[in-house]
């Protein structure tokens, strides 16, 4: 019996410990970030923020289930800021009513209209292009997304899973441009052109071109930059051209990384400070440079490397209107059995 009481006592202590830990998280000079982007990619930025303001930044990174966690936590959620790596997550958070509007003049001034929510619940931080890489052996080419369905590339195209959010967003933009029926036909023909079952990630596709498994691949712009600075992968990247598609018509499909304020953000003021900080010129420069992306501010230049790929024309349709086709896009990908 004595043993049981002592166990009980211990359990109580552990429990009390939890309470202590969790309440210590509520201290005032902090801001809590739920991040879809890996912590080490955003940490340098937060360190500067902490240095400047004295506000400590806590981060949890997860790729799956973050929205679910936020929803379950409800009004007791410690989350202040959500950082995402693509538009679909922002839309999901918005649709589930997990964000709150923050109508800061600074934000509205510097971020172009197509890269932010109409109700000011989310803002883009950086943009990235869904590029088409082509083998150098093909020579310089001029290419549109529509050309991926062209039979001349039969057996020469590589891509990652059609159901990856970057590809879903691309398909959604195709629906926005051509309608569902034509997009399905495009997907089916695209699938016939594939050199192999969709697999791996964007870097893997470039590697496959390098190895002559295919000539054409879809990939985000920043991977190209990251590969160029990696000793081993530079070799792969050197064997491809990075192409900005649809330059003679609607422009290249652009996705964003973005942020939003959690609906029940406990550290509201700190969160606002962080958001403002993230669109400051310095932060934009650093954030875009560490990730090889394009700053969302037009008055901040991307890194020299990224700038060296040249100017491009981006699809001017607002991301909100593209993202509304997200579910349809996924259905079409299933229907075309793109991954199977």
């Amino acid at each position: 019996m004595q043993k049981i009481t002592s166990i009980r006592k211990n359990l109580f202590l552990i429990f009390a410990g939890f309470i202590f830990i969790s309440s210590s998280l509520q201290a005032n000079d902090e801001v809590n970030v739920y991040s879809y982007r890996q912590a080490f990619l955003v940490k340098p930025l937060f360190d500067i923020f902490t240095e400047k303001t004295g506000i400590k930044v806590n981060v949890i990174f997860a790729k799956k289930g973050m929205a679910e966690r936020l929803a379950r936590e409800g009004k007791y959620s410690p989350a202040d800021i959500l950082l995402t790596t693509d538009i679909s997550r922002l839309i999901e958070l918005h649709d589930r009513d997990l964000l709150q509007a923050y109508s800061s003049k600074t934000l509205l001034d510097v971020i172009p209209r197509q890269y932010r929510a109409t109700d000011n619940t989310w803002y883009a931080l950086t943009t990235r292009v869904r590029n088409i890489y082509s083998a150098k052996r093909l020579g310089a080419i001029d290419i549109n997304y529509e050309d991926l369905a062209d039979t001349k590339y039969k057996g020469r195209i590589c891509t990652r899973s059609g159901k990856h959010s970057y590809n879903i967003a691309l398909v959604a933009s195709m629906i926005a441009a051509h309608g569902e029926a034509d997009t399905l036909t495009w997907l089916e023909k695209f699938k016939l052109n594939l050199a192999r079952k969709p697999q791996g990630n964007d870097r893997g596709q470039v590697q496959a071109i390098h190895q002559n498994l295919c000539d054409i691949a879809l990939g985000n712009s920043y991977y190209f930059g990251k590969m160029l600075v990696d000793e081993k992968q530079k070799l792969w990247a050197d064997s491809v051209y990075i192409n900005f598609p649809n330059q003679n018509n609607r422009g290249a499909h652009v996705n964003i990384s973005g942020m939003g304020m959690a609906k029940y953000a406990p550290n509201n003021e700190n969160a606002k400070a962080l958001m403002e900080f993230l669109v400051s010129k310095d932060a934009q420069k650093l954030y875009a440079e560490t990730n090889m992306e394009y700053p969302v501010r037009t008055d901040v230049m991307p890194s020299n490397l990224v700038a060296s790929w040249g100017d491009f024309k981006a699809d001017s349709l607002s991301l909100e209107s593209i993202a509304k086709y997200r579910k349809e896009a996924l259905k079409l990908i299933d229907k075309a059995k793109f991954d199977l």
Binding site: F18, I19, S22, S23, P78
Partner: peptide, 23 residues
């Protein structure tokens, strides 16, 4: 967690936060 916090509030204690799902 919500239940715990609600109770804490009605008892006029400091809200403990997400003691279960947040730790």
């Amino acid at each position: 967690d919500h239940f715990i916090n609600d109770i804490a509030r009605t008892l006029q204690f400091k809200e403990p936060g997400l003691v279960l799902s947040g730790t």
